[in-house]
Amino acid sequence: MAQEQNVANAKPWIARTDTPFIRITDVTKRFGDFVAVDNVSLDIYKGELFCLLGGSGCGKSTLLRMLAGFETPTEGRIEIDGQNMAGIPAYSRPTNMMFQSYALFPHMSVEKNVAYGLRRDGVPKPEAMERVADILKLVQLERFARRKPDQLSGGQRQRVALARALVKRPKLLLLDEPLGALDKKLREETQFELIKIQETLGVTFIVVTHDQEEAMTLSTRIGVMDAGRIVQVGEPPEIYEHPSSRFVADFVGSVNMFSGRVTDDEADYIRIASPDIGGEIHVGHGVECSPGQELWYGIRPEKLRISREKPENAQNAFPAMVEEVAYMGDMSIYRLRLPSGKVLNASQTNFLRHAEDTISWDEEIWVSWGDIAGMVLTQ
């Protein structure tokens, strides 16, 4: 039996060995007969920007609300900074939460919105105003201190909500779909602002999102959730290039997936016979498997190469027909049909403004990829 080699040299998140700042142990949350969070255990370290990623109903927001103290675990234990959170109400926890709706007071100025929590906590006015001024400068809103929320753009309102959450200096900031209300371009710009603010303050952030691109951009690590469980935890390159299952491979990015059976199992390569592709796939590294085993092979669209001539010395090259071409500006996406009927997506970067002799609709071409470009999945 061959052992899998980590050909990309991707490493798990091992930046520190100190005690986890947040420790979630065997946590389950039930609502009647429905299990929203199912026996989750997770460690998060101080200073991380950790993303909980998953589709609607996977349990990510419920887990966040249990950290905040808005929900109580049915079973299990949550510790923050070494303290058991059992019985500790939300207002006494070293956390603050920023909601997708922002929930700004429309009748208050930006300055008063940000100062509201400090006033409720009885912070002396001179200290409160100094802290408000500092945080507004950090989020680049000092010029808008006197404005009302309806006089701000969506991105500016998002930063007001962030400033209001951070001005109380929480040890942990919880963000539930914080950028979901922004348009695509503004969301992309705000992601980098959020990273800069988090790095400047050193506050631990936990972000809940369903947007895989957002999670990949923001996070030090990602926890992928499905049906109430954490199915994989890792740094963004590890999650993308080395998914633990077909679910993760398909959820995080686009992937072409083939089912097959192992025909050769050697120390430095395996071969997979796949009816989907109408031939054998050559994998240029060892995999923990056995001859005859059924498994799946995934290849990302950007790993595929298309050409009119069959590539020389290609281990994985198959004929295909171009069915559709979608021009996206920075890249083009090709929809290819194999003789077996299987449809693939291939993406190609558009390097030139006016590329001549580009591959187009209804052409017979070859699709190929390197022998270490794909992923072998056993579950």
Rank of each mutant, 00 (worst) to 15 (best):
L201V: 07
D264Y: 12
M97R: 13
F247G: 14
G370W: 03
L42I: 06
D121A: 12
T358V: 10
F205C: 02
G87E: 06
A249N: 03
Y45V: 00
S109G: 13
F105I: 11
Q83M: 14
K11E: 12
P236V: 08
K342A: 12
L118W: 05
G228C: 09
A227S: 12
E235P: 07
T25D: 04
T378G: 12
A181I: 13
F247D: 14
V35M: 03
L352F: 09
P12V: 13
F318H: 03
P319F: 12
G370K: 05
K29V: 10
T204Y: 01
G202L: 08
R77G: 01
L377K: 11
S254A: 07
G202W: 10
V248H: 06
E266P: 08
G122P: 05
V7D: 14
R120Q: 15
V110A: 14
N316Y: 01
R159V: 08
C51F: 07
P178Q: 13
R146S: 15
P149F: 12
S61R: 01
V207D: 03
L175A: 13
Y297M: 11
D250F: 09
N39Y: 02
R119C: 10
A320V: 03
C51T: 08
V322W: 08
M375K: 07
F34Q: 10
S274I: 01
S244N: 06
